[in-house]
Simulated scan of single mutants.
Amino acid sequence: MICPTLLTLIAALSLTTATPVKRTDAYLLHAKNSPDNCLGTTGDLYNGISLQNVPCSEAETNPRFKGKWEIVRGNNENGIRLSGTDYCLDATLPLTDTGDITLWTCLPGTAQQTFYYTDDDHIALTDQNSCLDFNAGGCGQFTCAPGRRACGTGPDALAGGQEWTVV
C-alpha cells in the first residue's frame, strides 16, 4: 500500500516541467591593452589549438573567425565555451608562467577549465593564481596580478595584459 503523502508527491512531480539551462550570450573578449584585437582563432578547431589575437573587425567580416565566448562575471564552473562548439578555454598543466591557454573539448569541473571572471576584469583559474594573459603574439597564462603586464617584464610586456573586456 502506498502512503497518501507519497501519492501527493508523485502527483505534484508529474505536473512539474523541467526548465532548460539557459546558455549565456556570446561575447567577444579583448585585452584592455589591445581593444582592436579579440581572443579567437581563424583555423580549424581541434584539441590543443592555440588562441590568437585576431582583429575584432574579423568577427563580422571573416566567416572563419571563431571568437565569441560564453562567459559570465564570477565563476564559470562549466568552462568558458567557444560559442556554438564543444570547445572551452583550457590551461596547459602543470601551470607555469608563460604556459599555454588553448582550446580543448569541454570537460566541466576540471581544474584546467574552471575559470573565474573577477570584478577587476581578470580571467583566472578558480582557486589558482594563474590568469589568462595577452601578449602581442597570442595568449597564455601567467601569475595573476592587478594591472599585470603581459608575459614578463621585458620590452614586449604590455600593461593591462590580464584585464579583459567583454563586448
Rank of each mutant, 00 (worst) to 15 (best):
T114H: 08
S57V: 09
E77I: 05
G43E: 00
A26V: 13
P94Y: 02
G99L: 02
G137H: 12
Y27A: 15
R148C: 00
A59Y: 01
L132Q: 11
K68W: 06
T42W: 00
Q128D: 02
F142A: 13
G147Q: 00
W69K: 12
K32E: 14
T42A: 01
P146Q: 06
F134L: 09
T143P: 11
A31E: 06
V167E: 15
Y46M: 14
C88V: 01
G147V: 00
R81M: 02
I123P: 15
Q113A: 04
P35S: 10
T110F: 09
G99W: 04
L28P: 10
C38E: 12
C131L: 08
P4I: 12
T16R: 10
T143F: 05
D100R: 13
L7N: 14
T19C: 05
A150G: 07
C151M: 13
A159H: 00
S83W: 06
T92Y: 04
Q141R: 10
T85F: 03
T102S: 04
G152A: 13
F115K: 07
V21C: 15
A31R: 09
S14K: 10
S14R: 11
M1T: 13
K68G: 00
A157L: 03
E70C: 03
D86K: 13
N75S: 11
C106I: 04
S50H: 03
T24R: 02
T165V: 10
T92L: 08
N75A: 13
C88T: 06
I123W: 14
T5W: 07
C106N: 11
Q113R: 11
G137T: 12
P108K: 07
I101H: 07
G137N: 15
P155H: 11
T17Y: 08
Q162V: 01
G109D: 13
A11D: 12
T105L: 09
L28D: 10
G161I: 01
P94M: 01
C131K: 07
T5S: 12
G137M: 12
G154L: 13
L6C: 13
P94E: 04
K22T: 00
G161T: 02
T110W: 09
E70H: 01
Q141H: 07
G147E: 00
P146Y: 04
G160P: 08
L15V: 06
